[in-house]
Design a protein around this nucleic acid. Structure first.
Lengths: 236, 236
DNA sequence: GTCGCGTTTTGCGCTATCGCAAACTATCGA
DNA sequence: TCGATAGTTTGCGATAGCGCAAAACGCGAC
């Protein structure tokens, strides 16, 4: 039985309102595992045999169409759960999860969920909360895709990433996991070409500093301005 | 205390796994109300004082940007819940709900939710299920918006509406509540002009019959074909 | 039955963004 | 150290769909 230190996870929203004993009991059902950078954690369409809690690293959840196009559903940050197919009554994973950095996760067998929820009802309530929040964010994303131009969507996406996983530097905020132009394109519903053009433009305005799979927001406020303006043009 | 007939709602997923007594207790906390066609049920940004279960009619949930653009988040069909802001820990409604037809709803005060969940944990589990399903659908919608052209998105939207609220006629399936071109545009991320053009096209191909705020799918299968083809052109 | 208003249709020019192709460049492995 | 490889940049033509405007139409009200 893998032993997990409760103090590391006790403060997570998922476990809010649980006694240390309860938490201990829940963690006893989990095992932990390490996934190296770029390895698959589960594939879209596979049997949902487990659900996960990310401890370290970063995970990308992506959905693929029958014709092979992909979108990034979200990036999972440490402390967040993913692969909750069972909670929504799905037998198969609706997306593919990939470690974008060396990652450590806790893994519960899906079969343990009903029992856990029965013993600890607040687990269901807490999960409802996070799923609800994700639904909100999803709607916001749809709203953006419907009403905003690509440049604004990219701006919003980067700001969100910075908020979720930004590492503060003295000369800006760095998104602290590898992310490609293609990834950003798949988050915003455009092509890597367009993303590249936009970032190049921003770079020449001093708004960002972006290299290979690496992005630093030099002037977050400037990007906020970009994200919020409604339709007119910017600097030449 | 408004009396509600339990037999009408006992089979709903929300109440799955509850005893008749429990259901009775839950319903005792609700009151019912009628909203005439085109009346507002709640406004985006207002205090989330209640949550709702639709008994009859149809409700549109729409989200508005600061600049006034709208999108339709979903259409609520009888038997579905809406206005669940509290379940996700939001104090205000994230969208506006409007009755698109004369509608009857059950209304619970938001303040009753924590107590109900504590007494009947399966409420939380059931709600998690439906919210999770909506999250899925949301992701599918994002995927469509990212990868498909407008015509296919409109096709998918109509097929979904037909599935959810279609009335079977001998010459097709009618969407049985009033819906405008503008509404469809707001569901698919386009303009009413484009929707109008598309429907006109389909009408001349005999795929649909569409009048003022009314749509009949004459050839659902033909529309499925449209929805699924990936990129090439159609008939002239 | 007629009038008026909200909805729908349609034309037309415009442009944001795609899609392809080619050049370029960090990074990693031998 | 030098390629090989994957990611990025950039140019350029093509086009789907927008946006504006005007006309036609259907429905409900009186």
């Amino acid at each position: 039985m893998a032993k997990v230190d409760t103090s590391l996870v006790a403060h997570l929203p998922l476990f809010a309102g649980l006694t240390p004993e309860a938490l201990d009991e829940i963690l006893r059902e989990a095992r932990s595992a390490r996934y190296p950078k770029n390895s698959a954690i589960f594939e879209q369409g596979a049997d949902a045999q487990s659900f996960f809690l990310l401890l370290h690293g970063h995970v990308r959840a992506a959905k693929t169409t029958p014709t092979g196009e992909q979108i990034v559903v979200r990036y999972v940050a440490p402390g967040e759960t993913f692969g909750l197919a069972m909670a929504i009554g799905a037998a198969r994973y609706p997306a593919t999860a990939t470690a974008v950095d060396d990652s450590v996760v806790l893994i519960w067998p899906t079969s343990a969920w009903p029992r856990l929820v029965e013993r600890f009802p607040s687990l269901a309530a807490n999960t409802l909360q996070t799923v609800g929040t994700r639904l909100q964010e999803s709607h916001t994303r749809i709203l953006e895709m419907s009403t905003q131009q690509v440049e604004q969507r990219v701006a919003h996406a980067l700001l969100r990433l910075a908020k979720q996983s930004g590492k503060k530097l003295d000369h800006g905020i760095e998104i602290d996991f590898p992310i490609s132009r293609q990834d950003i394109a798949q988050m915003t519903g455009t092509t890597l070409h367009t993303v590249s053009r936009i970032l190049s433009g921003w770079e020449s305005q001093g708004l960002v500093e972006s290299g290979r799979q690496r992005i630093i927001l030099r002037d977050p406020h400037g990007i906020v301005v970009l994200a919020e303006r409604s339709a007119d043009s910017g600097a030449a």
